[in-house]
Amino acid sequence: MIPALLTLLGAQLAGETLTRATGLPLPGPVLGMLILIAGFAVFPGLVAIVRPLAQGILGNLSLLFVPAGTGVVGHLGTLAGYGPALAVVLVVSTVLAIGAGALAFTAVAKLMKMEPEA
């Protein structure tokens, strides 16, 4: 537990420090994730150390959105004002993104003559 926690926090700390130091447009934890993947490649033993804690956190990922989501109480005015427009934005952009992404995958897979996994 402690080595796993140290690994995650250490990677996050390294990510935060590096993004601040270099001015990269990445959030610190995202760079921390890339650093951890590099860590897995260099020290394959790390994967087994991190796995139980990482699976525990990721298995309850939804819970972590609740405090920020509750911040909606401060935005009820915004949501009421822009409600219908925001609904159209979210539905149309999400449908377009899923459709375009899936079509791009199948188009390139077909070009490369890859067998579909259906």
């Binding site: 934890p29 890339l34 956190i57 972590l64 609740v66 911040g71």
Partner: peptide
């Protein structure tokens, strides 16, 4: 909300380590 967040921040903090943990499925 700030009063609520003083308690909820302990959960909120875990968002950072959770992002780092996405390295595992990748």
């Amino acid at each position: 909300y700030p009063t609520y967040f003083e308690g909820a921040q302990f959960v909120h903090f875990l968002l950072g380590p959770a992002t780092v943990a996405l390295a595992l499925p990748l």
